[in-house]
């Protein structure tokens, strides 16, 4: 069972990385972050299933729930920032945000 979840998780990581490199819309970048977090959550569930076949492991599941809730917080801050960016720049295209050169 856990192999299937593992494959899903790796696929999600690939999707998220594709999103980071190809998408220029800020909200789509935040969605990529969310997908990456969900891949990590699935990985936790998969390894929980691997450690105890047929049972539910509490520890990785609680860590997954913690991660889901913290990702909610991150998304809220990110969306607030996108709103602020839109007010300042008038766009949500990250290519227009190139004033900093880091």
């Amino acid at each position: 069972m856990y192999e299937a979840i593992l494959v899903c998780s790796v696929a999600l990581i690939a999707v998220a990385l594709y999103g980071f490199y190809s998408k220029r819309h800020m909200i789509k970048m935040v969605i990529s972050v969310e997908i990456l977090v969900n891949a990590a959550n699935l990985l936790l569930i998969a390894f929980g299933a691997y450690r105890a076949p047929g049972y539910v492991e509490l520890l990785p599941q609680s860590l997954a729930i913690l991660s889901i809730s913290s990702a909610g917080g991150v998304t809220a801050v990110a969306l607030a920032l996108i709103l602020a960016v839109y007010k300042v720049y008038g766009t949500v295209d990250v290519r227009k945000l190139r004033r900093l050169r880091g």
């Binding site: 998220a16 935040v30 936790l44 390894f47 990785p60 991150v74 801050v77 960016v85 900093l100």
Partner: peptide, 25 residues
Amino acid sequence: EAGFKYLVMSSAGSALMLSGIAIVY
């Protein structure tokens, strides 16, 4: 602009770290 850049990079980093933690588990 800096905050958004920091947020995306750092939260992606946290997610990758969580994947590492999952494997260690």
